[in-house]
Design a protein around this nucleic acid. Structure first.
Lengths: 166, 166
DNA sequence: TTATTAGCCGACTATTTTAGTAGGTTAAAT
DNA sequence: ATTTAACCTACTAAAATAGTCGGCTAATAA
């Protein structure tokens, strides 16, 4: 099993979508900016999230991504799974042929662990995360930073846009 | 976080030691044979297990490794930790500086997950594993195979050794 | 209608980790 | 004196990670 930046990025990006839901499609450029994830890498991840039908895309200007289901119906385990990071801790992917066709000494232990992790992660929905205090605080900080950055970059050319940007 | 063959091998080897405790030191060659793990690789893993004081070594003929503590006082989390496979699921190793010095959106989620996994794995001792039915069955099968193999290889040269081998 | 936006797609790449191998040295027992 | 088996260092093939780069397409807005 492995849980690396790939899975963490995927969950973080999905949570960003959830936090900014109801404001129309969110562009990957925005997520990249807010979460500090490379745009090209996000594209790869969202290709997989789209194939797993966790998000819907809108092309063209003003386009971006939206959650394809209600926040309460998307859990963390699904998201990690979608980007090919299995939560499975066995070496035989649960088949039990770990040692030349038969189960190894610790097979059942890893099965139990996998079950444990899966149960935990699938019990947490995006809505659960959105409602957490610590998540809301970080989100607030990120949004402030994002708006500031926007004013900095566009403000000099067109100061009148400041209100529109916020 | 990652859990690959390295950590699985370490736990399997430690469990092999536990299962054959009380029969003097167990050589890595025996473990290699029974568990199907390369001898050189086992040497590397046991160097780390020894540094973490989970095993004691005896050099020379008849030598090998023994658990340095009681089976009930060694848990799975320690073993995995000893071979440098952290059970930590955060990207910042718990420090919280995941996104340019500040916590990322999902930091606390990964902290919770890490805690969950650690609690699970550290609640399981080698003794717990030794007492499991499924472990005992696999161990029995492996020991039979091991003895058979021994008879095959030494039996042709000195058939009288058969009883001694068992 | 043309420029821009932003998703879509495939190929390429540097770095790191995994899972070993190879070759030798040292300590203890027969 | 020889064998056993731990101990140690260095090397390596393959895979995965974490990206980058360049170009294409659909939709919108000037």
């Amino acid at each position: 099993m492995r849980l690396t930046t790939k899975g963490r990025y995927a969950v973080t990006a999905m949570l960003d979508l959830a936090l900014h839901a109801g404001k129309g499609p969110i562009s990957l450029a925005d997520i990249s900016e807010r979460q500090g994830i490379s745009l090209s890498y996000l594209e790869q991840l969202f290709a997989k999230l789209r194939r797993s039908e966790l998000v819907r895309s809108v092309r063209g200007p003003g386009g971006g991504y939206q959650l394809s289901r209600d926040q309460v119906n998307i859990n963390v385990a699904e998201v990690i799974d979608a980007v090919n990071e299995s939560v499975d801790a066995t070496g035989c992917h649960g088949s039990g042929d770990c040692q030349s066709g038969q189960t190894c000494l610790t097979h059942h232990l890893w099965c139990d662990l996998s079950e444990q992790i899966h149960a935990f992660l699938s019990s947490i929905s995006l809505l659960d995360l959105v409602q957490r205090k610590d998540v809301q605080q970080v989100a607030k900080r990120q949004d402030r930073r994002y708006v500031d950055q926007l004013i900095m970059s566009t403000g000099e050319k067109a100061p009148a846009d400041r209100k529109a940007a916020v």
